[in-house]
């Protein structure tokens, strides 16, 4: 599958996120207040379905429809997962959005989502600047062993 064709999955993913109300601020707010099971159910059942799907794919030899290898590896462990996770959570609480849903919100016509998108770009750039400036090793190794 050529890169431009992947847009199809972006459209599908964005459509489902929107229909699932993951892009709705008040739904995210209800999740953080622990007053609504909806989003926990969405995330939990998404994990379960993806786990089953990826497991079946591995069992079938990890080949794509066109016979190419499936390039999916578990993300390596690093301490950044702790602090990065918490900082991300703080941003999720402030903006009511994550990198994917902010873009979907923009498509839904929620204009203020563009401020979130601009912030995420700036935060990403700042992190890259910080890592480049202080010449720290990158957190994700470029080559990693494929798990059987």
């Amino acid at each position: 599958m050529r890169p431009p064709a992947v847009i199809l999955f972006g459209v599908l993913f964005g459509f489902v996120l929107s229909r699932a109300r993951v892009t709705d601020y008040d739904t995210i707010a209800a999740m953080f207040r622990l007053g609504d099971f909806h989003l926990f159910g969405v995330i939990g059942s998404a994990i379960g379905t993806a786990a089953l799907g990826l497991w079946l794919l591995r069992r079938a030899g990890n080949h794509t429809l066109l016979g190419r290898p499936v390039e999916i590896r578990p993300k390596p462990w690093h301490r950044g997962a702790i602090w990065g996770g918490l900082i991300f959570g703080a941003g999720w609480a402030l903006s009511g959005a994550c990198p994917g849903t902010s873009l979907v919100q923009a498509g839904e016509g929620k204009l203020v989502a563009l401020f979130t998108v601009a912030g995420i770009l700036a935060g990403t750039y700042l992190y890259g600047w910080f890592r480049s400036r202080f010449a720290l090793p990158t957190i994700t190794p470029r080559v990693q062993e494929v798990r059987p």
Binding site: K75, P76, G80, G84, G96, A97, G119, T124, T140
Partner: peptide, 21 residues
């Protein structure tokens, strides 16, 4: 608030190596 939230999301996602998806 949204821009500040976005900053944390962007920094946090790169530090953590990913986001909720």
């Amino acid at each position: 608030v949204l821009f500040a939230g976005g900053l944390c999301v962007g920094w946090g996602a790169r530090s953590a190596g990913g986001c909720p998806s």
